[in-house]
Design a protein around this nucleic acid. Structure first.
Lengths: 344, 344
DNA sequence: CTGAAAGCGCTAACAA
DNA sequence: TTGTTAGCGCTTTCAG
């Protein structure tokens, strides 16, 4: 164990290089390169010899070196919030499929909703010279990406817009979706409607709150402070918000849940409640159909696909001004949103 | 557009290099390298000059070149089946967290349950010289990875074991979990129990079927062919399996669902059924608690974490024989598994 | 059709 | 404390 371990020139666990293959096959280095890359201009016989040497040596091209030379990595980076969130899984997968169609691989990481971590990750990806970057922002200031974008890293924001820089963004219509959902409750007779959402510094969260207020205002309904609760999506916080809204002297008769995590907790909280409370949630969740939960659904996969396609269009050299694409949402009426208020 | 686009020597979108920084700061190349890497032996004053130049030029180290030199990429690859599957999200996230703790990034891709795609992906990751590879196998022959492993790519299989090679694997106890679940149904009086699972070439699927048979045999119960249905997890196939099992002259009184996707479809199918049919599923799913669905839960995050920790232990030079780690499952009784058979 | 030489941007090893 | 030189493994260029 003492001296055997020291083999400083055997990196990558001692892998053969093109040079080794060339030596073994008795050809020049460039010929090996040609064969490996399927370039024309090699005799079938020579090619066979090279292939044999590759086989025997177990050669596999070192893409790090290739990248260094070619300047393109055929890799895109995806910075998202939490890979474990069921909303981001399909989004990520959609990005991956588009990348695959373009021969690129995907490096992804989670920011955990921490702006610092988002930046750290995005810059680490840039240091690896990803060709492009898709970012679901955690922070609200993306000026740190300006040098990178200027240097040629194609960048598309998705789910939430970039902060303080002009860049492509693909979003769902959070405002319109929330407004529609709340209007739906109003149409079913509700006048006191509670809103439970995520922290307002998150763009989608504040947009949905704005949609809620707009729908109330459109119907000339007041909004009392006690009906709005925003903050962490942790179960404790959401549970207590539900409890308080329902325990008030004039309790809300309907609730709007601002995202998938809030919705899950609200559903749990309401399941133990004696009175039937109407509910509409933003984001569809699995089995919501069986539970009869009315939701505003957004298409996570379409979000990812659209963003990725835009990214690769940029990488193909299309040079338009940054644009904001907004995808529509769908109201899925399944029962919970159609429960009338008790008084009616 | 004609000649402007041709700037062959301006790669990476024309980014400054250490050489540029050195020139600007009036120092040597190596000094810049020292500053960038936080190595000692640089005067505060020199350091400041270099930092300034870095700032002005918008320099960011090119990790591709660094990797080529150092031989380690600080990247691990994860080949999974489908990033959009809610089972793999938490697994992937857990791997990511461990990688992050070790300063590594994660490249991941989905095989879509296609062995060829798995191989293609795994080898592409090897070509990029990932330090390690975590694979959820789609195929059953992993000899193609032998040269890579021999060349030093640390490799850990997770969720399913490797085929035809000796390698680390971290698995859930599919056999024991399924046996427990079926035994649970038997304990509640069922004698005719149906099993609906995934394609048997998938290791977990065949193990779960084996667990089902073992439980039946332990209770000296026969298993009729019509009670076992394996194949694609597509909704149509699963729906028709449910329909047939319940339409038989002597219908099953309970069902065991072999994985999360099967379970979801079975729940939907049963929700429209007049008779109450007992049900236990493998894998917990969101909101299953509210629907009262009894499941055998496995810990996807623990699976990912354990595999990743093992991987990094290998990368730290630990050299033990390949090992198989099996994590236990938990039966969560919520109602559907405790429904008695009609006759009782 | 084939190969030798230069160099991508960085770090290791050694000088100064 | 600082700089110079040689390469990492590949592709590009250009000459045979």
């Amino acid at each position: 164990m003492a001296d055997i371990a020291r083999r400083p020139d055997h990196r990558y666990g001692n892998r053969p290089t093109m040079k080794d293959v060339a030596a073994r096959a008795g050809v020049g280095l460039k010929t090996v390169s040609r064969v490996v890359n399927g370039e024309p201009g090699v005799t079938p016989d020579t090619e066979r010899r090279v292939q044999e040497a590759i086989e025997i040596l177990g050669f596999r091209r070192n893409d790090s070196a290739r990248v260094l030379r070619k300047g393109r990595t055929a890799t895109v980076g995806l910075v998202l919030e939490d890979l474990a969130d069921p909303f981001y899984g399909p989004l990520s997968r959609a990005v991956e499929e588009v990348a695959r169609a373009h021969g690129a691989l995907l490096i992804n990481g989670s920011s955990a909703e921490d702006p610092y971590r988002e930046q750290e990750l995005a810059l680490a990806l840039c240091a690896r010279r990803v060709d492009g970057l898709i970012v679901i922002p955690a922070g609200t200031d993306h000026r740190y990406l300006e040098p990178e974008i200027r240097a040629g890293v194609a960048t598309v924001f998705v789910d939430r817009p970039a902060g303080l820089i002009d860049a492509d963004a693909v979003l769902s219509d959070s405002f319109g979706g929330a407004r529609d959902g709340v209007a739906h409750l109003i149409a079913h007779g509700h006048r006191r409607i509670g809103f439970i959402g995520d922290r307002p510094r998150i763009h989608t969260a504040s947009e949905r709150l704005r949609g809620y207020r707009a729908a109330m205002e459109d119907a000339s309904l007041p909004v009392e402070d006690a009906w709005v609760s925003v903050g962490s999506t942790g179960p404790e916080r959401v549970r207590s918000a539900v409890r308080e809204m329902l325990a008030a002297p004039e309790p809300v008769t309907a609730l709007f849940a601002g995202n998938n995590r809030v919705l899950v907790t609200v559903v749990r909280a309401l399941s133990g409640h004696p009175r039937r409370v109407a509910l509409v949630g933003f984001d569809d969740i699995e089995l919501a159909d069986l539970l009869g939960i009315t939701v505003i659904a957004q298409d996570a996969a379409a979000l990812g696909r659209t963003a990725a396609e835009r990214l690769f269009r940029r990488l193909d050299g299309v040079d338009e001004a940054p644009e904001r694409v907004v995808l529509g949402t769908t109201l899925l009426a399944r029962g919970s949103g159609e429960i009338p208020p008790p008084s009616v």
